[in-house]
Design a protein around this nucleic acid. Structure first.
Lengths: 156, 156
DNA sequence: GCTTGATCTAAACCTCACTTGAGCTTTCAT
DNA sequence: ATGAAAGCTCAAGTGAGGTTTAGATCAAGC
């Protein structure tokens, strides 16, 4: 029944919408692990579909691959994040997102106050330095991110 | 009285807190323009202090240098953005920021709903694709951005 | 058993926003 | 007139998160 529990890299790619090259990249970065066939080809567990999904979601939420690797490393090998893991992680994310929202709202207010003033003085204008650095750091729009939506899988 | 209306690159750097190399970079990208001395050194107008300030503020608000160049190009040469320009630009920015906030709030809600569910299915989990792509595009944390605060000018 | 498509590795390349370095020239205060 | 400080150009490097390419090998269907 679970003879074909192992899937090839192209299947994993198709299932997750991630490019094959990206999966190899994640493996190189230690985010996921692969078994090998005698011929040297990678074979993944079905559970890795969820692991990759987790990577994608966490990325959308602004974590860097390094941070994601840190989270995944806390899970036993071959274990996918379960409800408890996810609760821990998502609680941390909530705080991060709240900080981002707060920073943007602060900016929005300043922008409102500034419309028409045109001062643009670094010393006087609150807009400069309005967004806090910590929030910036994690905000993480990877510039290619937006391109993924159109080309998702359904390929195999 | 306005004989020394022209300032050297180091002065512009000191006044704005931007590295000399960055100013050259901006010039190369067409964001600012420089006159040259007979010896080939750049001389800037005092107005360029404001232009560079504008670049910094716009960057903080998530515009790429290319977008900023687009805005600056709409201004006559040697004219610094004035109140009217700023009103136009900042209105556009408000919309952009509002979209970002909305996307983050949507994510926050989904995250709340998802805590403990641990589904992580790309098909079922609303978290994936929660943040809209347009908002992502402009969010723009430049990874070095946070480093600037400590080293601002006051050098000369 | 052969062909076709998937996979392999390694290294190079991409964007963005700059920085760094090498090697030389200009400017300015004394 | 001189010497330090600042400026110049051009090329290459950085870092995140990958993609692309080249040339070879593997797996599977007929």
């Amino acid at each position: 029944m679970h003879r074909t529990d192992l899937i090839a890299i192209g299947d994993l790619a198709a299932r997750t919408g991630v490019a094959v090259s990206a999966i190899r990249f994640y493996e190189a970065k230690g985010l996921i692990a692969a078994l090998r066939t005698r011929g040297g080809q990678r074979r993944f567990l079905r559970a890795d579909i969820r692991r990759v999904s987790f990577i994608l979601i966490a990325q959308q939420l602004g974590l860097s691959l390094e941070e994601i690797a840190g989270e995944l490393a806390r899970l036993p090998a071959e274990r996918t994040p379960n409800a408890a893991d996810w609760a821990r992680i998502s609680t941390a994310l909530r705080a991060r997102i709240a900080a981002q929202i707060a920073a943007l709202e602060r900016t929005q207010e300043l922008l409102g106050a500034c419309i028409g003033c045109g001062c643009l003085s670094l010393k006087k204008c609150g807009l400069y330095n309005a967004q806090d650095k910590a929030a910036q750091r994690g905000a993480g729009p990877r510039y290619l991110m937006g391109d993924r939506s159109g080309e998702i899988a359904e390929r195999g």
